[in-house]
Amino acid sequence: MANFYSVLLTVVTLCAGLIWLFDALVLKPKRRQRINDEEQRLQQTLDQEARERIAPQGNIAEFAQSVFPILFVILILRSFVYEPFRIPSASMMPTLKEGDFILVQKYAFSLRDPIWRHELLEIDRPERGEIAVFKYPPEPHLDFIKRVVGLPGDRIIYRNKTLYIEPACEQNANDCAPLKVIEQTNAESDAFYFNGATPLKAYNENLGATEHAILVDPTVGGRERFYFQQPGTARDEWIVPEGSYFVMGDNRDNSEDSRYWGFVPEQNLVGSAQFIWMSFEMERPASSILPSWVPSGIRWERLGGVE
């Protein structure tokens, strides 16, 4: 089932629409008849003010009539076109930072109903390197955002903080691509990133047609013992099942992703991250009297498309 806000918006919109429909089909004809009877009795045409005084529309029906078109448009846009999301953690740094507000293209992969998320129309599938929002498989009411690393049928290895990919290949094919190391080159940037007091190393990485930056914590050792263990593979190796995807965060040592809980089924996909429309600076000194959730500034330079 979709998250609470999607369900709430759908239910409220449906209720407003039903109230408006009941008023239009049942109550409005009765009000009109009452006005007609009064006009015949007085042998004159009443003005609008008199009509509303004789047969007023109920407050609830009037409110439903006012808000239903607005709610309906919001529901359609949010369910099938674009939905805003807030980045809640540092797992996708440096591409996305905590405090970024992004627009997610809901129709990038498929159209789904806003409550049960049944697929209504298949449009496309994620490409390697694309940033996707999806329902967190262990807890589907939560939305996660990660980068798509492995496609159905791919062999993925993450060993010594290096990513290896062997693309899917049809059985008995002769031109299958071999296992390839995803090279990392030092990223030239004026920005510095930290995990607490530990400085992180930034690298550039190419996944498919996408070049992006990743962060690595040099103080963090191997975590293979915590990895999701797929039967028949090594501890740091996975074969992506059909209809599923392997995702990772760009902040490699600070991301809870497919390495730890497994694959993302197609039906969990929500959409593709497209644009940062607002970015709030959340850092402030410990001496500040303001609560931590109050922004301390706007990062105008971060507004724009997402790679």
Rank of each mutant, 00 (worst) to 15 (best):
L200E: 12
P241S: 05
Q171R: 09
D175Q: 15
N254S: 14
G150T: 03
S258G: 15
G221L: 06
G150I: 15
I156F: 01
G232D: 05
Y245G: 13
S258L: 13
N174F: 09
R147S: 06
F194Y: 15
P231N: 09
L215V: 02
I182R: 05
A187K: 11
Q171F: 15
A173F: 09
V148S: 04
G249K: 06
D217A: 00
A168F: 10
R252F: 14
S189Q: 10
A177C: 14
V181I: 11
E211H: 13
I239A: 08
V148P: 02
G208W: 05
L215D: 04
G150R: 04
C176Y: 06
D143E: 12
N186V: 12
Y260R: 03
S258N: 10
Q229W: 05
D175T: 13
G222Q: 07
D250Q: 11
Y260V: 00
G222H: 04
N174V: 06
D236M: 07
R259N: 07
D217M: 00
Y193E: 09
T162C: 02
P218D: 00
F192Y: 11
I182P: 00
I165T: 05
P231I: 07
G222Y: 01
Q184F: 00
G222N: 14
C169Q: 13
N186Y: 07
E170D: 12
D253L: 07
N172E: 10
N160Y: 02
N251G: 13
A168K: 08
T185Q: 12
R159Q: 11
R155T: 15
A202G: 11
C176A: 05
A187F: 07
Q184I: 02
E170C: 10
N160T: 00
L207C: 03
I182H: 02
K161H: 01
K161L: 00
K161G: 00
P152F: 05
D190G: 07
F228S: 03
R252K: 08
A177Y: 04
A173W: 04
Q171M: 04
C176Q: 03
R235Q: 08
E242M: 08
Y158N: 04
G222I: 00
I239Y: 03
P178T: 02
R259G: 09
S244V: 00
R252E: 14
E211I: 05
K201A: 13
P167A: 09
G222M: 04
I157T: 11
E256L: 14
A234M: 08
I182K: 06
D143Y: 11
P199T: 05
L207R: 08
K180R: 15
G222K: 03
Q171W: 09
S244Q: 15
G232Q: 11
A177T: 08
R147G: 06
L142C: 00
L207P: 05
E205A: 04
N160P: 03
F192N: 12
R147Q: 04
L215R: 10
I157Q: 13
E166K: 13
Y158D: 08
D217Q: 01
F228C: 07
Y245I: 12
P218A: 00
L142S: 06
Y260C: 00
Y193W: 14
H212D: 08
Q171P: 02
N160D: 14
G243H: 02
A191P: 01
Y245M: 07
